[in-house]
Simulated scan of single mutants.
Amino acid sequence: MTVILVRHGRSTANTSGVLAGRTEGIGLDAHGVSQAGALPGRLTEVLEDLTAVVRSPLQRCAETVAPLITQLGQRAGGAAPEVVDERVVEVDYGDWSNRPLRDLASEPLWKTVQQHPAAAVFPGGEGLAEVSRRATTAVRALDKLYGGDDGGRPWLLCSHGDVLKAILADALGMHLDAFQRIVVDPASISVVHYGTARPQVLTVNNVGALTLPRRPAQAATVGGSTGTACVSSSAGTVEATIGE
């Protein structure tokens, strides 16, 4: 079954360089609103097949999927359910929440977050290892609910940068300490197919239109696949940015 992972559009916290965390009232900025409006068009090939839109309860995720939910309501099969799931909410950054990233970069914990994120526990908040456990457990449970039993029913999950990176690291078989190598930009699309043998990562950090193979092969192709998925990723930065 295939899950389309969407990071929320650019938020006002992204623009101001603040680690919003779970702070209330953080919505999309003007560019983020534009990104949200473009999302249905980028998903044209899968709109008729989407079985559910699952999202974090935070405002920026609700605003990101709102145009998609409207578009789905107009399709022949009716709207896919919009499901709010606390298990895919943003990291609880505790005392780091709502602080400028430039100030956090001088904290001793910053180096741990960059180099050994599996050991990072935010003061007054949660650890990234805990985030990985709750997010990966949730995505597998949700996939059983919404993925269908034929392997061809996509569903969508809208969440946050570090949460999605943890899900992707797990799907790639990477240790969490390596998850800072993954780039997940605002409004980007990544796709994981949870097959019977193993997860297959079909695209990461796609910032264009999405094209999916109808039925990903259950067994890996010797020598490589023939190339049916659209893959697009950005170069990212030398040092990973946490959170928003």
Rank of each mutant, 00 (worst) to 15 (best):
R7M: 05
R215Q: 11
S233T: 12
S190L: 02
K111Y: 04
L164G: 04
V204L: 09
S159M: 00
V54S: 07
N205M: 01
E82M: 03
R99K: 09
E86A: 07
E82F: 01
Q218W: 06
A235K: 10
H116N: 15
L142Y: 06
Q71C: 06
T70K: 15
R181A: 11
V33W: 07
R215E: 13
L5Q: 07
V238P: 10
R102L: 05
D170R: 06
E239I: 14
L176A: 15
A138R: 01
G151M: 03
G41T: 01
V238Q: 15
D92Q: 13
A105R: 08
D162T: 10
A166W: 02
G21K: 06
R181T: 12
A135Y: 01
G152D: 13
A38V: 01
V65T: 09
P108D: 01
Y194L: 11
A13C: 05
E107I: 01
R215V: 11
A166V: 05
Q114A: 05
L164M: 07
G208V: 09
G27F: 07
K144S: 14
R55Y: 00
A141L: 05
A217H: 11
A76P: 05
V113G: 00
L68P: 04
P213V: 04
V192H: 05
M174G: 09
N14Q: 08
A30V: 04
V191Q: 10
T44S: 14
N14E: 09
S232Q: 15
A66K: 05
D150H: 02
L212R: 11
A129E: 06
A120M: 03
Q218M: 09
L210K: 01
A105Q: 13
V91C: 14
S106M: 03
A13L: 03
A36C: 15
V18I: 15
E86N: 03
D29Y: 01
G125A: 06
Y194G: 12
V46H: 02
L72G: 09
G236D: 13
G32R: 00
V33S: 13
V33R: 13
G224T: 11
V88D: 04
G25C: 14
Q180L: 10
L156C: 01
E82A: 08
S132G: 12
E107T: 02
L28W: 04
R75I: 06
F179E: 12
V6T: 00
R42K: 11
V54F: 04
Q180W: 12
Q115D: 12
D92Y: 13
I69D: 10
H175P: 09
A36F: 11
Q115F: 04
L104D: 04
